[in-house]
């Protein structure tokens, strides 16, 4: 019986998951605390949720963030799918090494570098061609598309590498045009990866503080920027309430995405 969970590994699993979820659990618990002091329990209350509902700065920022995230995820889906497809299917083309680097670098590059370099680009572009005029939602969206493209490309590439190409080949043999094969065969088969990629890019955009801070303008304060400036002043139960709502949303979305990803491939 080699392939069994040893006591040591079982303990480590418990420790690992406690470490991952302990802080999140404490966030949720203290969002229902009646006291302003986050750390002293003073009874159950939904007071902070009510106050959150009346916080206009947070709501405005949340709307801006959602708008950017939808644009960024959709743009990243288009570009990332093309990039992932090219990397998986086109073995040789001029500049493949450079393209591979460009497609994956935003994934690991420290955000301060990505943010600074994009801001300097926007400033230089404005000087040279007069666009973009100032910075705001469009510039943050462009920055987030660039970031999201890398993630979508990796997800799509992995899915393409895993699936059976004989269906595509059969369609081609039967005289379907390549574009039609892509639409009718490839696209439905990689749809779960596309959904996951879109959600990933969406979440990344919604969550990003650093790149958005560099590329934002005076009228485009995003939700993470509001959270950050509030957290810098100290712990606030309203942020706990916001975090709890965020967690619930994410849990629902991820469960849905998991259902999609784990759906068995249709047997033709």
């Amino acid at each position: 019986m080699i392939n069994r969970l040893s006591p040591f590994l079982a303990v480590m699993l418990v420790v690992g998951y406690a470490f991952l979820y302990g802080p999140i659990a404490s966030l949720v618990v203290y969002s229902f605390n009646a006291s302003r002091l986050v750390t002293v329990w003073a009874g159950f209350s939904t007071h902070w949720y009510v106050e959150l509902m009346h916080n206009e700065a947070i709501q405005r920022a949340a709307l801006i963030s959602l708008e950017i995230a939808v644009i960024a995820a959709t743009g990243a889906l288009l570009l990332g799918t093309a990039a992932g497809y090219a990397l998986q299917r086109y073995r040789r083309f001029r500049g493949r090494a450079l393209f591979g680097t460009l497609a994956i670098a935003p994934l690991v590059l420290p955000e301060v570098i990505t943010g600074l370099s994009l801001l300097l680009l926007f400033v230089a572009l404005e000087q040279a061609v007069g666009w973009p005029q100032g910075r705001g939602v469009p510039t943050i969206a462009i920055a987030h598309i660039t970031l999201g493209t890398a993630y979508v490309a990796v997800v799509v590439e992995a899915r393409l590498a895993a699936f059976d190409r004989s269906l595509e080949e059969a369609a081609l043999d039967l005289g379907a045009r390549p574009f039609k094969v892509f639409l009718v065969i490839t696209l439905p088969l990689i749809a779960p990866a596309l959904a996951a990629g879109w959600l990933l890019a969406f979440t990344l955009s919604l969550d990003d503080l650093v790149i958005a801070s560099f590329t934002s303008g005076p009228s485009s304060t995003t939700l993470p920027m509001v959270i950050f400036s509030s957290v810098r002043l100290g712990v606030s139960p309203q942020i706990n309430a916001l975090a709890t709502l965020f967690l619930v949303t994410v849990a629902v979305l991820v469960t849905l995405a998991g259902r999609l990803m784990n759906r068995p491939e249709p047997k033709s």
């Binding site: 999140i24 966030l27 203290y30 750390t39 959270i227 950050f228 957290v231 712990v235």
Partner: peptide, 26 residues
Amino acid sequence: LLVILPFWTSFLIRVYAWIGLLSGNG
């Protein structure tokens, strides 16, 4: 999925959670 899940939640909020845990009266 449980390992991936925190990655999908806000990074900023997960860092914030530690302030509440680690502070002097945390």
